[in-house]
Design a protein around this nucleic acid. Structure first.
Lengths: 136, 136
DNA sequence: GCCAGAGTACTCGGATAATCCATGTCCGAGTGCGTACGG
DNA sequence: CCGTACGCACTCGGACATGGATTATCCGAGTACTCTGGC
């Protein structure tokens, strides 16, 4: 979560929520977030697969919220981005010949499960609309 | 947190907790975690700055818990590793000319604060000793 | 004046190249043990 | 035989290469608006 992707996604959705139902291009979004338009499309791809945003190609195309902002929970956004396997150990597996190495993945997975659930509880308490309403 | 650093640190501390008060070298730890010894030293450097582990150079040197394992909370470990500024936006600052871009960092920081606190609450409920006791 | 059709402009999506950070390798600093020499 | 001093082996810590992943550039696919020609 602290890799910036959630921040980008939230920024995108905030812009879409304030667009008044108009299609917003990735280039415009990129200008506000101050990143490359391709990165915007990367994130919107995840959000689109999760059914949070809709896209339209061609002239005057862009992105739009797929449903009302008060029906989008920030936990939905989190899940849309991090729906992969729980990455307790990304690359190197611990040494199975070591008593600790053999068991730690399971224990860490349990701990991570608790932690992630707590995170989702917090994010699930806030809708996108509530978040956007905090802006002037 | 999902970058593997916490997993490595927890693994290290588990090994130290089971060492029976003997100094454990970074190379031995690396063998169990299955990573390069330098990465172990990187993490122990953070843990040492936080006063969680002690180190000794020279022959028969290595690392040791700086205090009893039931006095080390997993939240202490988390704070030791991620004590930097809240990285809501790591690299590119949002466009200040945009109404959303100007405000989103603050709103995200508030949200991240809540989320991180929930995480710390979970981790703060478990001591290193309790975690290690789950191993056979 | 009105309709149809092609052209054009604009946008998303994916493939390929460049950049950056995490990882790995190497070398210096420090410490304890072993050994050898002198008393 | 005992004490001291030197040398060596081992370990941490930081500086400099390397590799893979993130980021940026480019090109193709698709859609709506526009302009032109015909009726």
């Amino acid at each position: 979560m602290n890799d910036g992707r959630f921040a980008i996604a939230t920024h995108i959705l905030t812009l879409l929520s304030r667009s008044g139902g108009h299609w917003v291009s990735s280039e415009f979004i990129a200008g506000s977030v101050n990143i490359n338009p391709v990165l915007v499309r990367r994130e919107t791809a995840s959000l689109r697969r999760a059914g949070i945003v809709a896209c339209k190609e061609g002239k005057n195309g862009g992105y739009l919220l797929a449903r009302e902002s008060d029906l989008i929970l920030l936990s939905d956004v989190y899940r849309a981005l991090y729906n992969g396997p729980p990455l307790a150990f990304a690359k190197n597996r611990p040494n199975p010949a070591c008593e600790v190495g053999r068991q730690i993945e399971g224990h860490l997975a349990a701990l991570y499960g608790e932690a992630e659930q707590a995170l989702l509880d917090v994010l699930g308490r806030t809708t996108l609309k509530a978040f956007v309403d905090r802006f002037d």
